[in-house]
């Protein structure tokens, strides 16, 4: 059990624990704040996986933009007095069966796969490699995603104005 393992389990615990609260809590504002902890935990996991750029992007986009947008939506669409939302548990038996089947098959696959790992090398930073990859091998995807963001922006603006 090295320090790395301890930090990993700490972050994993933060992530999974607050994700559980996001789903189960009935007050939607509390859920949003627990989502914040989940996103921070995921960013920490990215740092541990030596994906520093992804971690920073995660913090900037998720915590900085998406979460603020979600909170904004929650505040705009709820009277603060009646923020309780009904989380229906009508379909709990079929969903439990489906989740059990999925989890069983995932664990089965996980145990039966012969995992090949490369020896870990200490990378200094992944930013340069990502940039080269983004503008050479994945340039079409890069352009497409730019166009998609533009379309999403225009669509959201025009839809919200109606």
């Amino acid at each position: 059990m090295t320090v790395y393992d301890i930090i990993f389990y700490l972050f994993a615990l933060i992530t999974v624990g607050s994700a559980f609260f996001v789903v189960t809590l009935r007050n939607i504002v509390y859920s949003a704040f627990f989502l914040l902890f989940t996103l921070f935990g995921v960013a920490g996991l990215f740092v541990l996986l030596s994906a520093d750029f992804i971690a920073v992007v995660q913090l900037v986009i998720y915590v900085g933009a998406i979460l603020v947008l979600l909170l904004f939506g929650v505040m705009l669409t709820h009277n603060i007095t009646q923020v309780q939302i009904k989380t229906g548990t009508l379909q709990i038996i079929p969903s439990a069966i489906a989740v059990l089947i999925l989890a069983f098959s995932l664990i089965k696959i996980f145990l039966n796969t012969n995992w090949k790992t490369v020896p870990l090398t200490v990378q200094s930073s992944s930013v340069e490699g990502l940039g080269v990859l983004l503008l050479n091998q994945y340039s079409v995807v890069f352009e497409l995603i730019g166009i998609l963001l533009l379309i999403a922006l225009i669509g959201a603006a025009s839809m919200a104005r109606r």
């Binding site: 996986l49 992804i54 998720y62 947008l69 490369v118 990502l130 990859l133 983004l134 995603i145 999403a152």
Partner: peptide, 29 residues
């Protein structure tokens, strides 16, 4: 990180983050 794929996985994660941002904006509208 643990496979032999270079940085492609991290780039895919980046694209997923961007898609999530677009989706959140549309969904909020």
């Amino acid at each position: 990180r643990y496979g032999n794929f270079g940085n492609s996985g991290q780039l895919t994660a980046l694209f997923v983050i961007i898609l999530a941002a677009a989706e959140a904006a549309i969904a909020m509208a």
